[in-house]
C-alpha cells in the first residue's frame, strides 16, 4: 500500500511536471511566433501586419519607389509593368494588371506577407487578399508630409527606420533649399491640365496641388470640389493663369494648341509663352508621390521662377 502511494505521488508529480514543461514550451513557442502589429494606412484602415516582413508585392510605382528610397527595395518580390525607377524595379517580376487592376491569383503566387497598393486597386481585390490572410497597406499620400509619414511607416515595419529618417531628411533639405530661394517672390497663378477637353485639373486636396503650392504657385482650381474636377473654360479666362502645366498624357505636343484658339490665346500664360508640357518622366514625377517628388517641386519652381534657378 505504501509503495503504491509513493508510485501514485510520483505519477501525479510527473503529470504536473510534464504539463508544466509543455506549458513552458507553449510559452516559448508564442514568443517565437511572428510578431503582430497594427498600423493605420492612408485610407484610415487598421491593418494587422506580421513581422518580420520578408516578401512584399508593390502594386504601384510610387510605393515601389518609397521602398527603394528607404533601403527596403530588396524585400520586393514583384511590382508592376508601370514601374520605371530605380532601374532594379524594372527587372523585378511583374503582377499582371487588367486596366490598372492586379489579378489576385498572380499576387498570391508570389507568396507575399505584405502587399502595397493605392486606391487604383479596387476594394474587392484588397478585401480578397486580406481574406486570404495577406495584409494590404494602401499608401497614397495626398501631400508631401504624407510621403514622409508613409516612409516612416514603411521604415518602422521593414526595419529600415534609419533609412527612412535619412531619406526624409534629405527630401526636407532639398525642398527647403528650393522654398528658401523663392520665399520672397510673388506667387504666380497656375493651371494644371490633366486633360484638355474637358479640362480636368487637380483640386485642393491633391498631391499635385501641394507640389504647385510648395513650388510657389497658386492653383487656380483649388476652390473646386473633388480631387480631379472639370474646370470650365470661362472660369479659366477669368482666373487668367500666368503659367499652364500640361500633363504628358494629354497628347498636346506644343504651344500651338493654345495659340490658335480664340479663347486660349487671350490667357496670360499663352501670351507670354509660359506653357510647359511635361515629358513622360516629368509627368511621372508629378503623379507619383514618393522620393522623386522633390524633382517635381524643383521642376515646377524652375518653370515659375526661371530667373532664380538659372543664376545658380
Amino acid at each position: 500500500m505504501k509503495w503504491s502511494n509513493v508510485l501514485a505521488i510520483i505519477i501525479v508529480a510527473l503529470v504536473f511536471l510534464s504539463i508544466g514543461y509543455y506549458a513552458g514550451q507553449l510559452n516559448n513557442h508564442t514568443i517565437q511566433a511572428p510578431q503582430k502589429i497594427v498600423v493605420t494606412d492612408d485610407l484610415g484602415r487598421n491593418v494587422t501586419i506580421y513581422l518580420p516582413i520578408k516578401r512584399v508585392v508593390s502594386m504601384d510605382p510610387s510605393n515601389t519607389q518609397m521602398m527603394y528610397a528607404i533601403g527596403a527595395g530588396n524585400l520586393l518580390v514583384a511590382d508592376t509593368s508601370y514601374d520605371w525607377w530605380p532601374a532594379q524595379a524594372k527587372s523585378l517580376p511583374k503582377v499582371e494588371m487588367d486596366n490598372g487592376t492586379a489579378s489576385v491569383e498572380e499576387v498570391v503566387s508570389y507568396n507575399p506577407n505584405l502587399v502595397l497598393a493605392t486606391t487604383i486597386q479596387s476594394t474587392q481585390i484588397i478585401d480578397q487578399l486580406e481574406s486570404l490572410g495577406i495584409p494590404v497597406l494602401v499608401l497614397e499620400p495626398n501631400n508631401i508630409s504624407g510621403i514622409y509619414r508613409d516612409m516612416y511607416l514603411l521604415g518602422n515595419i521593414t526595419g529600415h527606420k534609419t533609412g527612412a529618417i535619412n531619406e526624409v531628411n534629405y527630401m526636407k533639405s532639398y525642398i527647403g533649399n528650393i522654398t528658401s530661394k523663392i520665399a520672397n517672390l510673388p506667387r504666380l497663378r497656375v493651371l494644371y491640365m490633366l486633360w484638355p477637353d474637358p479640362i480636368y485639373t487637380a483640386g485642393n486636396n491633391t498631391f499635385i496641388n501641394n507640389i504647385i503650392t510648395t513650388a510657389g504657385g497658386i492653383n487656380v482650381a483649388a476652390n473646386l470640389t473633388g480631387p480631379w474636377p472639370i474646370i470650365n473654360n470661362e472660369t479659366v479666362l477669368q482666373d487668367n493663369p500666368q503659367v499652364i502645366l500640361v500633363d504628358n498624357d494629354t497628347g498636346i505636343s506644343n504651344i500651338s494648341y493654345f495659340k490658335n484658339n480664340p479663347v486660349w490665346e487671350n490667357i496670360s500664360a499663352v501670351q507670354n509663352n509660359r506653357v510647359y508640357i511635361f515629358n513622360q518622366t516629368e509627368s511621372n514625377w508629378m503623379n507619383e508621390p514618393g522620393p522623386l517628388t522633390i524633382y517635381a517641386v524643383r521642376m515646377v519652381a524652375q518653370f515659375l521662377y526661371p530667373q532664380v534657378f538659372n543664376e545658380t
Partner: peptide, 9 residues
C-alpha cells in the same frame, strides 16, 4: 473678357 466668355464660350 466678358466678350470672349459670351461670344466664344
Amino acid at each position: 473678357i466678358y466678350m470672349l466668355i459670351i461670344f466664344y464660350i
